[in-house]
Deep mutational scan, measured.
Amino acid sequence: NITNLCPFDEVFNATRFASVYAWNRKRISNCVADYSVLYNLAPFFTFKCYGVSPTKLNDLCFTNVYADSFVIRGDEVRQIAPGQTGNIADYNYKLPDDFTGCVIAWNSNKLDSKVSGNYNYLYRLFRKSNLKPFERDISTEIYQAGNKPCNGVAGFNCYFPLRSYSFRPTYGVGHQPYRVVVLSFELLHAPATVCGPKKST
C-alpha cells in the first residue's frame, strides 16, 4: 500500500533546468501520483496529453512515469509533440509517434532571462542524422558540413554543433524561455507502482 506522493514538485520547481540537447530525465515510481497538483503548480502555457485524457490521469496506474525536463524558446514548444519536425524535434528531443503522456510548458522569462542575455541554455544546431525517439546526444564533436574532414577544428564548413540561446527579458514571447516537462507513461507487463490517489488504497 503506497502512500508517499510522487515528487513532481522537485521536477517542476527545480531551480535550474537542463539545456534541451542534454535534457534531464527523472524516473518516478512507487508513489501516489496526484496530477491535479500539477494544474495548480504554475499558470501553464501548455498542458497537452496524448493517448490519455488529462482529467482521467488520477484514475490510472502505470509501471513507471518518466519526467523529462529542459528549456526551449516559446515558438519551439509546438515541436514537443508526436510527429513534429524542426531543429528541436530533429536534433535535441524527439517524441515517438505513439507517445503516451503529457507535455507541460510554461513561460520562464522571469527566471531564465537576463538583461545582458542568459547564454547558459544550449541547443544542438547541427547533426548528421535525426534523433530516434527519446535519444539523447550530448556530443560536442565538430560538425563537418563540407567534404573536407574537420579534424576537430572549427572553421570553414566545420561547425561547433551547439548554439546558445541568449534569453533577454525584452524579447518577444516566441523568443522567451519556456520550461518544459514531458511526462511519459510506461505500461509494462509488470506491477503498477505509480497510481492516482483513488487507485492507491
Rank of each mutant, 00 (worst) to 15 (best):
residue 120 N to S: 14
residue 32 V to I: 14
residue 80 I to T: 03
residue 135 E to M: 05
residue 11 V to S: 03
residue 30 N to H: 10
residue 16 R to C: 08
residue 150 C to V: 05
residue 123 Y to E: 07
residue 156 F to R: 15
residue 51 G to N: 08
residue 99 F to I: 00
residue 12 F to E: 02
residue 195 C to S: 08
residue 36 S to P: 05
residue 91 Y to V: 05
residue 125 L to W: 14
residue 167 F to H: 05
residue 105 A to R: 01
residue 65 V to T: 05
residue 9 D to G: 11
residue 113 S to A: 13
residue 74 G to N: 03
residue 81 A to W: 06
residue 172 G to M: 12
residue 157 N to A: 11
residue 80 I to P: 02
residue 170 T to C: 08
residue 13 N to I: 00
residue 101 G to D: 00
residue 134 F to M: 08
residue 192 A to F: 13
residue 4 N to S: 12
residue 55 T to G: 14
residue 77 V to W: 02
residue 37 V to K: 13
residue 72 I to E: 01
residue 58 N to V: 07
residue 23 W to S: 04
residue 5 L to C: 08
residue 172 G to V: 14
residue 20 V to H: 03
residue 59 D to V: 06
residue 55 T to P: 08
residue 92 N to G: 03
residue 108 S to H: 04
residue 67 A to N: 06
residue 118 N to D: 14
residue 197 P to N: 15
residue 53 S to L: 08
residue 176 Q to P: 03
residue 60 L to R: 08
residue 137 D to P: 02
residue 54 P to G: 09
residue 10 E to T: 09
residue 185 F to V: 05
residue 3 T to W: 04
residue 73 R to I: 04
residue 102 C to V: 00
residue 96 P to R: 00
residue 132 K to F: 07
residue 6 C to N: 03
residue 106 W to E: 00
residue 155 G to T: 10
residue 70 F to P: 01
residue 30 N to S: 08
residue 51 G to A: 03
residue 73 R to A: 10
residue 32 V to N: 08
residue 35 Y to K: 06
residue 2 I to T: 13
residue 136 R to G: 02
residue 23 W to R: 01
residue 54 P to Q: 13
residue 34 D to F: 06
residue 94 K to I: 01
residue 155 G to R: 07
residue 115 V to G: 15
residue 158 C to N: 04
residue 185 F to W: 07
residue 111 L to Y: 11
residue 41 L to I: 12
residue 150 C to H: 03
residue 88 I to P: 02
residue 82 P to T: 03
residue 143 Y to F: 13
residue 189 H to Q: 14
residue 171 Y to K: 15
residue 166 S to E: 13
residue 69 S to V: 03
residue 69 S to R: 01
residue 200 S to D: 13
residue 89 A to P: 07
residue 182 V to N: 00
residue 173 V to N: 12
residue 59 D to M: 07
residue 169 P to Y: 06
residue 74 G to H: 03
residue 168 R to Q: 14
residue 1 N to E: 09
residue 155 G to S: 11
residue 97 D to H: 09
residue 135 E to S: 05
residue 65 V to F: 09
residue 165 Y to Q: 05
residue 133 P to S: 06
residue 166 S to F: 07
residue 187 L to V: 12
residue 166 S to G: 14
residue 53 S to M: 10
residue 133 P to E: 06
residue 138 I to A: 10
residue 153 V to M: 14
residue 134 F to N: 07
residue 127 R to E: 05
residue 73 R to V: 01
residue 47 F to Y: 11
residue 185 F to I: 06
residue 143 Y to W: 10
residue 160 F to K: 13
residue 135 E to K: 02
residue 99 F to Q: 00
residue 194 V to C: 09
residue 22 A to K: 10
residue 178 Y to D: 05
residue 94 K to D: 01
residue 116 S to W: 10
residue 195 C to K: 06
residue 46 T to V: 13
residue 173 V to R: 12
residue 111 L to M: 13
residue 142 I to P: 11
residue 103 V to E: 00
residue 31 C to R: 04
residue 103 V to L: 01
residue 144 Q to F: 02
residue 17 F to D: 05
residue 150 C to A: 05
residue 33 A to I: 15
residue 16 R to S: 14
residue 38 L to C: 03
